[in-house]
């Protein structure tokens, strides 16, 4: 994966706060799945492990989708002002 150096995956440090910049960078790398892929490709993933992982991820995403729908259903609002008293 080649990108323009110092343009991609780059975060500026503001007010000398290195830790915050690192956190932002790490979070982006984690959410994009780059670190996961890095860890996964350190060692060969056998076909049975690949299958199991893919099946697990499928089940997990189906569960998450259903659960999100349920939560949205429970939290549904039918008022003109859905959160009275809140700004």
């Amino acid at each position: 994966m080649r990108h323009a150096s110092f343009i991609a995956r780059t975060v500026f440090v503001q007010k000398n706060d290195v830790e915050a910049a690192c956190k932002v960078l790490n979070r982006i790398l984690g959410r994009e799945g780059i670190l996961d892929q890095f860890r996964r490709t350190r060692y060969y993933e056998k076909p049975f492990q690949f299958r199991r992982r893919i099946n697990y991820e499928k089940c997990k995403s189906i569960y998450n989708e259903d659960m999100d729908r349920k939560i949205q259903f429970v939290l549904r609002k039918n008022r003109t002002d859905p959160y009275p008293g809140c700004i």
């Binding site: 110092f6 995956r9 290195v18 780059i34 892929q37």
Partner: peptide
């Protein structure tokens, strides 16, 4: 940073491939 360097930016250049050659065994 503690030693007094002025860090402008932090870049990650971890080599990650989505179709790498076969890695070593586990």
């Amino acid at each position: 940073q503690m030693a007094g360097m002025d860090i402008v930016s932090i870049t990650d250049s971890t080599p990650v491939a989505w179709d790498p050659p076969r890695p070593r065994k586990q």
